[in-house]
Simulated scan of single mutants.
Amino acid sequence: MVDASAFKATHGFERSEVRLCNWRAAPWNVWAFRNVSEFIPTARIAAASGLTEEPVVDAGELLRETFLLNGRSITVAEALRETSTDAMVVMKSGRIVADFHAPDFTLQSRHILFSVSKSVTSIIAGILRDDGLLDFDERVPCYVPELEASAYDDARVCDVLDMRVNLDFEEIYHDRHGSHARYRRAGLFDPPEPGGGMETVVEFLAGLKKGKADHGEAYQYASPNSDVLGLVIQGASGRRFPDLASERLFRPLGARQDAYVTVDRAGTPRTGGGINMTARDLARIGEMMRNGGTADGNRIVSQNWVHETVTGGSRKAWAESASVSWLPHGRYHNKWYQTGSGAFFALGIHGQWLYIDPRATMVVAKFSSQPDAIVDDAKDFNLALFDALASIV
């Protein structure tokens, strides 16, 4: 039983104050992002058995290092504080060199990835392609018949992977009444409307309409595409996503702690934004990607898929999108971002990052509870931090 007075003394609010209507807002999000399974249904993604975590690696020396940000000298500790960081793991040449934990965060604490989930999910798609079970050039309804008459009717799996599906959908995080609000409600991320019905994720996706242009052209960021990818994975494999993710990724990776993924009322996993895991296990995924698809001697996904993911994609599609303003030399392929300078990363709202710099042999996993869902200045801040870390560690 939770001691209500102790909870309030620690967090500044009562546990009963955290609800579906406010869990992504400050100050409640700091606790909520670490405890999603208390208010949204989840499915377990089992870790490897018999493995334990090594002790925390003190980050004190690293936190005192300074770097320049827009002409201002700032310490790493100040940068973490100003970006509302909950945890950060830094790996160098396969070794953990620093763990940062905010108060009440531990090696066992799991945190929601939000859209970093998309990049994790794409690895499972790559594994199925390696197995010959998934054809990226095939139409989505070949794997998910329920989407036959939707916007995805003539979309290919590769269009879904590269966010080049033309949807009549706007990703507006603070909109309480549009298509994105319906999407959140279907995934149980928001409370139902008073007196309104409750769609499942599949019902919501099946009702999406195509935009005016063709698929496969412009880059249009839309989270529903990544839930479609989860359904494609289940259709191609005949397996539940969390079971497949455990068997083919988390266990061979050597993940130390079980992860989990949120599900809707029909049990459909929110692969577009609902995976929760520890910072160290996320860093291990990044290290696997840095090593071309291997971890602890286990081949998880092909080197060809990793190489294609971190070097492919359309420069034109990115350059013509609004995202070019914050990543001018970037590209997006297989649900991973490329910086244009060799580094690549996964990114989620409120400041979730998995950043890999192969030239610096560095991986950074960073969890945050930024008050705003998405701010381009915060992205610039974090990218500057990662560049600085690459020269420090």
Rank of each mutant, 00 (worst) to 15 (best):
E65Q: 15
A151W: 06
D3A: 00
T121G: 04
V90A: 07
V202W: 03
L107G: 14
T10I: 10
D281S: 08
A98T: 01
G178S: 10
V301F: 06
E78S: 12
E146F: 09
K366M: 09
Y221I: 07
Q370D: 03
D168I: 03
F13N: 06
P191D: 11
A32I: 00
F204C: 00
R315H: 14
V201D: 13
I392A: 09
S109A: 02
W336D: 03
G292D: 06
A255H: 10
K209N: 13
S73E: 14
N276I: 11
P191Y: 05
I275S: 06
L253I: 09
D190G: 04
L389E: 04
A87Y: 04
F39N: 04
S119Y: 00
M362N: 12
D154P: 01
T294N: 08
D264K: 10
V375H: 11
T294L: 04
D130Y: 02
E14M: 11
A9W: 03
Y221T: 00
R315Q: 11
L383S: 05
T42G: 09
L385M: 00
G313D: 09
A186G: 09
G196L: 08
R110I: 12
A87F: 10
R284L: 14
T268M: 11
D153A: 15
S150A: 01
W318V: 06
H11M: 04
G230D: 02
C158R: 15
G348F: 12
A186M: 02
A4R: 09
M288K: 07
S115T: 02
L383K: 11
M289S: 03
